[in-house]
Design a protein around this nucleic acid. Structure first.
Lengths: 140, 140
DNA sequence: TTCCTTGCAAATACTTTGCAGACTG
DNA sequence: CAGTCTGCAAAGTATTTGCAAGGAA
């Protein structure tokens, strides 16, 4: 399962597997929406897992450093969201501007574009954001 | 010139053309980088234009409402930037993660993709962000 | 038993709001 | 002169940092 391999990743960088890290990982694993720090906090509270918001932030940052989690900034939301990688391929999202539901777009059309940009700008292209807003079927 | 037509837009919505609005518009007009609120504030300070940071925020929001300015959230920068539309077509940006220089990418590859997304997700697609990071020629 | 991790408090960064006085039309 | 706009102060939200106590290996 996921936890064991992650434990190794943590230990390889001098870190430890803890109660709170397990809880955040398990939540991200069973949730199908990218979650914000405050949503992770609220959800764990509800499940009576004692954890501080600060610890949530520290945890997602560690998981991001280990390459286990992706930090997303959706369209003008004003907060970051976090999503487990766990073998999933790079993809993007669309968020309903009424109900907030987030749907994965299982595609990324930017491989060719990257080369074009490098040719035109002489930049070495690193990462990118591509996020959509719109109205979901229920909210149209 | 720009100022006259904007004055009409302001008046049409019961607003007025003021000293500070002129200053912000003029700055955006002559600057070729998208600017953050604090950069607009700092630049105007330097030019001895008396203006408050709060007024900068209010001004860019008014200009955004009038459709004269676009609000950008570049790749994980933690602040918004503002750019004059002024007849320019929709486009995206790449930002150097070393020196912060921002270059316009005069393209948007998403017309076709939008239709595909609508078909697949049943969303009505609205707006999107697409922003890149990388290393500019000088910082490689 | 080492030293990493957590919780709590406080700080920081960005942005918005309230209100009285200043200014535009 | 009416009603909008500005500056200042304060509040709001997201996130980070400092430090002493708690916990994993």
């Amino acid at each position: 399962m996921l936890e064991t391999s992650i434990k190794e990743g943590l230990q390889a960088t001098g870190r430890r597997m803890t109660r709170t890290r397990k809880a955040v990982l398990a939540l991200l694993e069973r949730t199908h929406q990218p979650l914000s720090a405050s949503e992770i906090f609220a959800q764990l509270q509800e499940e009576h897992v004692a954890i501080d918001l600060v610890t949530v932030y520290r945890t997602v940052n560690v998981l991001k450093e280990l390459g286990l989690v992706v930090q997303l900034d959706l369209y003008q939301e004003g907060q970051s969201r976090y999503e487990l990688k766990e073998g999933r391929t790079h993809h993007h999202h669309i968020r309903c501007q009424v109900c907030g539901r987030i749907v994965d777009l299982l595609l990324c059309p930017l491989k060719k574009l990257t080369k074009l940009i490098e040719k035109r700008t002489q930049f070495v292209v690193g990462d990118h954001t591509l996020e959509f807003t719109g109205f979901c079927p229920k909210c149209q």
